[in-house]
């Protein structure tokens, strides 16, 4: 789909996917990309790298979700109070 028509910065060769040639800013993102796009083709060590990167990210995703929920609650009650006053 979209990924096939993307263009990339010149000289971005920090971490390049050996299966499709897409460049990534670091190895973690490359590992996540390999796992989401080419999981079946991956050798064991790359599958393990994907799973490790995914688990690493899971922690921050969970934290973000908490913050997002907190933000939603804040917005909801904030507006409830503003509408009560106005």
């Amino acid at each position: 789909m979209r990924t096939e028509r993307l263009s990339y910065d010149d000289g971005s060769d920090t971490a390049v996917c050996e299966y499709c040639g897409r460049p990534f800013p670091d190895d973690d993102l490359l590992a996540l990309h390999r796992g989401t796009r080419h999981f079946e083709q991956l050798p064991d060590d790359q599958q393990a790298a994907y799973e490790a990167a995914y688990a690493d990210e899971q922690e921050s995703v969970r934290l973000f979700r908490l913050k997002a929920l907190g933000g939603l609650i804040l917005v909801y009650f904030g507006f409830l109070m503003v509408y009560a006053v106005v």
Binding site: F64, R65, A68, L69, G71, L72, F79
Partner: peptide, 26 residues
């Protein structure tokens, strides 16, 4: 019924809140 600034603020917040909601789907 509602002052304009609050209408604008609510609209802006609704957009922000829907982004937060969408971001829960990962």
């Amino acid at each position: 019924a509602v002052p304009t600034w609050l209408v604008l603020l609510t609209g802006g917040a609704a957009v922000g809140a829907s982004f937060l909601l969408a971001s829960l789907v990962t």
